[in-house]
Design a protein around this nucleic acid. Structure first.
Length: 276
DNA sequence: CGACTTTGACCTGCGC
DNA sequence: GCGCAGGTCAAAGTCG
């Protein structure tokens, strides 16, 4: 009888352990996915940071009263950075937070777009929509591709191609301007090249002061607008982002539940360590 | 009725 | 040259 009881108890333990194992496996999958997303975001952020630094260095006034050696040193630094950072192109990308239940691919960026095609691409199950700028009467060469983010479907990836040959303000109807300022979407417009991106935040934010997405009133300036106001906003944005990212990373590393879960996931992904 | 969207067909570039 | 994938066209449909 004792043997029977022991056997039953053993079976129950096995069941519990299996259930635990299954839930841990699921957790592992989730964490791996999140880790992958974070990794990708980190890479893009680093590229963005490098670009910002290059721009700041490029703004150094080389004609100011400095010694020749200082000037040469500055020029050399700028050249080194220029080699590291890809040459700015007329292509840029932004990420737009949308309502996850909203299936539309409309990115409210202040310009008027006409959809001329849609295609399902190989690397993303969500269809890619093709838009042309329809604001300039003579025809604007700018094109835009919009596709849902493959990792987080609540975000739209908008790729801009070309430069607007007109101003955003002169053609935006009042209705669109109004809808922009009240929009739920959060957008950061491209500054000059690829990887000017606002990041989706797939994790709960309640406990973190860092919230990387910043809503801008886009009706006041276009992506090519180099007004002082725009520069102030951009500088503020970059400084805030850099500080906030550090804050965010610090808060994540201080979070015992996050580090424990991460450690567990890493340990589980290395069977040889498990066995040892 | 005009502007806009949808969607299948077609074009083009690229790798093999 | 062929096949594939991304990009564009244009006719039909939809909406205000």
């Amino acid at each position: 009888m004792n043997v029977m009881e022991a056997h039953t108890s053993c079976n129950e333990k096995v069941k519990t352990l299996r259930a635990d194992l299954e839930s841990l496996r699921k957790e592992n999958e989730t964490l791996r996915f999140k880790l992958g997303v974070m990794n990708r975001k980190c890479n893009i952020l680093q590229a963005h940071l490098q670009e910002t630094k290059a721009q700041q260095l490029g703004m150094i006034d080389l004609t100011a009263s400095r010694s020749n050696s200082e000037i040469t040193s500055c020029k050399r630094s700028v050249r080194i950075i220029e080699q590291q950072v890809p040459t700015p192109t007329k292509t840029s990308q932004i990420l737009v937070r949308t309502n996850s239940t909203d299936n539309s691919q409309v990115v409210k960026d202040g310009y008027q777009w006409r959809k001329y095609g849609q295609k399902v691409t190989k690397d993303n199950p969500s269809p890619r929509a093709y838009f042309r700028c329809s604001m300039a009467p003579a025809g604007c060469p700018v094109k835009k591709k919009v596709q849902r983010c493959v990792e987080d479907k609540s975000f739209l990836v908008a790729t801009y191609d070309g430069e607007h040959n007109h101003d955003v303000n002169s053609h935006v109807p009042a209705l669109i301007r109004d809808s922009l300022s009240s929009s739920d979407d959060e957008v950061v417009l491209p500054k000059c090249s690829v990887a000017n991106i606002i990041y989706p935040e797939p994790y709960p934010l309640e406990n973190h002061s860092f919230r990387p997405s910043i809503a801008l009133d886009l009706s006041l300036s276009g992506p090519n607008d180099k007004s002082p106001r725009n520069d102030v906003v951009e500088n503020k944005l970059h400084n805030n982002n850099c500080n906030d990212i550090e804050e965010y990373v610090a808060s994540l590393t201080k979070d015992p539940s996050f580090t424990a879960a991460l450690a567990a996931a890493v340990a589980r992904s290395m069977p040889h360590l498990h066995a040892a």
